[in-house]
């Protein structure tokens, strides 16, 4: 009984952690290049509504995911234009996009509220692997393909960031854009690309929410997941691998907040992931100083050529 409960919880943890993981991977790239994107929540919800609308009208859920990626990317372009080209305050621009995303999705989503989605991305069970004791039940029975995509993406993005010349370029731009510029790197291009990637992944995360994880549209359905992504990025020390661990811890907390409802007041449970996020950040800030040095040195600083 207990065993089944634990296995069930862990299996669902993957489903709940996936949008967090996708968003965090994107935010890590964006912040590694020096741009904070507080618009993740907005980009996720825009991804969610556009994916749902597309899947609902065309009947093709994968097309929905593609449109969600484009929607997230477009919103990210706005953020990139404001914060990289116009050198506006990244916090303000990001917050504005979150507000805008929540508002726009509410407006366009009115007609889709409460309608069932017939064409979803259905879960799969992997033959053979499903028979591995415990692990098979957690990982390979009744999971969504997007869960696997995000898991595969993590080591790839980690390798690119830390082992390849592309990664060196991205990290250098975030640490010391003047040095990168002087080495012949186009700082603006790199930052645009990273912010764009962040938006695309946030959009896909949103699409996953409305098409696969809970195939329906409700206003504000991201429910603050975008904010958890911001906290997770710091919690992960800007490393994709740690992002995966963090995303699943928070995925478990979100899942538990539903499962424990018969026993604990639901208001307290809803608070749990966010309270834990604050605790985790406090622990990191007062913990051993190593964490701090991982933060990209030029985070939130627009780059102006010619200044020291």
């Amino acid at each position: 009984m207990i065993e089944a409960w634990v296995i069930g919880t862990l299996a669902r943890t993957l489903a709940y952690g996936t949008p967090l993981l996708l968003g965090t991977l994107g935010e890590i790239y964006s912040e590694r290049s020096g741009v904070v994107n507080l618009g993740v929540e907005g980009m996720m919800i825009m991804g969610a509504i556009s994916a749902f609308a597309t899947a609902f009208t065309t009947g093709n859920p994968w097309l929905g995911i593609l449109v969600a990626a484009i929607a997230g990317g477009l919103a990210a372009l706005v953020h990139a234009f404001a914060s990289i080209t116009l050198r506006a305050n990244q916090v303000v621009s990001g917050l504005a996009l979150t507000m805008l995303g929540l508002g726009l999705s509410g407006l366009f989503g009115k007609g889709f509220e409460g309608k069932p989605l017939d064409s979803t991305i259905s879960n799969v069970t992997v033959p053979l692997l499903k028979d591995i004791p415990y692990l098979g039940k957690i990982l390979f029975i009744d999971q969504n393909p997007i869960v696997y995509i995000s898991i595969v993406l993590t080591p790839i993005l980690s390798y690119i960031l830390f082992k390849t010349s592309i990664g060196i370029t991205i990290r250098s731009v975030g640490e010391n854009p003047a040095a990168a510029d002087s080495a012949g790197i186009n700082v603006w291009k790199v930052r645009y690309a990273c912010v764009l990637l962040g938006g695309v992944l946030a959009g896909i995360a949103g699409g996953y929410l409305s098409i696969a994880y809970r195939p329906a549209w409700t206003q504000g359905m991201t429910g603050g997941m975008g904010w958890l992504v911001i906290a997770l990025t710091i919690f992960a020390s800007w490393k994709p691998g740690r992002g995966l661990v963090g995303a699943y811890i928070f995925g478990a907390l979100i899942h538990l907040s539903y499962r424990l409802q018969p026993f604990v007041a639901p208001q307290l449970l809803k608070m749990m992931p966010y309270a834990f996020a604050i605790l985790a950040l406090v622990a990191l800030a007062i913990g051993p100083g190593k964490q701090k040095s991982e933060e990209p040195n030029s985070l939130m600083e627009p780059y102006v050529r010619g200044e020291k």
Partner: peptide, 13 residues
Amino acid sequence: VSNHTVIENIALG
């Protein structure tokens, strides 16, 4: 880039 290694700095660009 002071947080990076010598090699990474040479590799940049």
